[in-house]
Amino acid sequence: MNRLMVWLPLGVFAILVGFFFKGLTLDPTEQPSALIGQPVPAFELPDLNTGQLLSRDMLPKEPFLLNVWASWCITCQVEHPYLTKLSEQMPVVGLNYKDTETAAKNWLQKLGDPYALQIFDPTGRLGLDLGVAGAPETFLVDANGVIQLRIQGEVNDRVFAQKIQPMLETIQ
């Protein structure tokens, strides 16, 4: 066989590797959410703990995280300690999504309650308006109540460093 031809497969593979490497830095699940740059949708839902009716105007007036969670969600349990730590740094508003009151309250009692407010959304109405696909999801909302970032899945050190931190720096 030709001396040069035998190197061809390796060459083709090398080119593919280049593309794969580039491909890894692209995120296929990154859905350009229609809500980025939009204010949080209007809502009137009770607070899980106090029963007080909450609305959009009562959200914090500084950048905060809106965390969609449920007691049936295992990953929510995994990210919970991290959110608890984060809550010392910035307010975290909970959106208890498609859950029952008792289960949600028990969960908070057992694992601790770092949330500034706890929107109770058993039917998932606000979740629907937010375009939530499942729990957990976390939105970064700025001081004007505009959604800046959407994170599907667990919030952890890496997500904070790569996504939340840079966005916080740009909006502050």
Partner: peptide, 18 residues
């Protein structure tokens, strides 16, 4: 891992198969 396995085997192939 792919680079090691595929790249390695194709390199060996290129060296020997001629």
């Amino acid at each position: 891992f792919l680079i090691v396995v595929i790249g390695g085997s194709l390199t060996l192939y290129a060296v020997r198969a001629s």
